[in-house]
């Protein structure tokens, strides 16, 4: 049976959908079967991030209303044979699909996959609760700034009331140069502050911004960070990607100085 993980944040724009897509690819690279479920009705972008928007024929609402079978709505993601996405459609789904309905759909998918990643909408409204009630565990994505962390803390307190197996934290858009210069909060301090286990630190990188609809370049730092995150989740490793390593030492300080000037 699949491990159902909801990826949430509270605050919008922190990179939930990007994390779902790239984490899905990283898990798939480990040889696992992964389904990505977009439950952000009306503001759905998972298909675009994965570059499969032209392949969408049916969505989750069509599955629920019986116009197609689940397997017909699943879209295989390019060269990743074991990675599938179930897209969501119009905002109409918000009023039609309940948490129980979604649970039934996911239960049907569960025997076919090792992991089901649920892309949760921003906020803590109905859409959030619908996504969260179907999951076994949660990944809270936050960026190292005040507004995002405040929202993440509220979301974590709500998630605790769902008695999830595990609630973990991902720090996205961490800047190694700023952390080394103590201008940005250290992810380990954030972990202590939110009292939630940190499973991944993802660097802020142009490659991520430019890769929407394409895969991440093999040599970029984010690719490595997602690989570490995937093995932390699957194998239970506790390794955290070090975003500051490039900015330590003499060459690091030169690199930092140059980045600050730019």
């Amino acid at each position: 049976m699949a491990n159902k993980i909801v990826v949430t944040s509270g605050k919008g724009g922190v990179g939930k959908t990007t994390v779902v897509a790239n984490l899905g690819i990283a898990l798939c690279d480990l040889g696992l079967r992964v389904a990505l479920i977009d439950v952000d009705f009306g503001l759905n972008n998972l298909d675009v991030v994965l570059g499969v928007e032209n392949k969408v024929v049916y969505d989750i609402l069509d599955v629920f209303e019986g116009r197609c079978r689940i397997k017909q709505a699943l879209i295989q993601c390019g060269e990743h044979k074991n990675l599938f996405v179930l897209p969501s459609g119009s905002a109409k789904g918000n009023n039609i699909i309940s948490g129980q309905n979604l649970s039934v759909i996911l239960e049907n998918l569960s025997p076919l996959f090792d992991y089901i990643l649920i892309d949760c909408p921003a906020g803590i409204d109905v859409g959030f609760h619908r996504a969260v009630c179907c999951a076994d565990s949660a990944l809270v994505v936050a960026t190292p700034n005040l507004t995002s962390l405040r929202d993440a803390d509220k979301v974590i307190s709500i998630l605790k009331s769902y008695r999830m197996q595990k609630i973990s934290l991902i720090i996205n858009r961490a800047r190694g140069d700023l952390i080394t210069g103590q201008k940005m909060m250290n992810p380990l301090d954030v972990q202590a502050l939110l009292k939630t286990q940190l499973v991944g630190v993802l660097p802020e990188e142009d490659a991520v911004f430019l890769s929407v609809g394409n895969k991440l370049p093999k040599k970029c730092e984010s690719k490595k960070a997602y690989k570490i995150l995937a093995s932390n989740l699957h194998i239970g490793n506790k390794k955290i990607f070090d975003v500051t390593c490039k900015y330590n030492g003499i060459f690091g300080s030169i690199r930092r100085g140059l980045k600050n000037k730019i």
Binding site: N145, L146, L149, R150, D153, K154, S157, L178, I179, G181, Q182, K183, M184, M185, N186, D189, L193
Partner: peptide
Amino acid sequence: MKKGNRELVRIQSVLENDR
């Protein structure tokens, strides 16, 4: 105090009040 540390102290007090 550096900006990162200042932000950490600030968020600590915000979260304390929220909780």
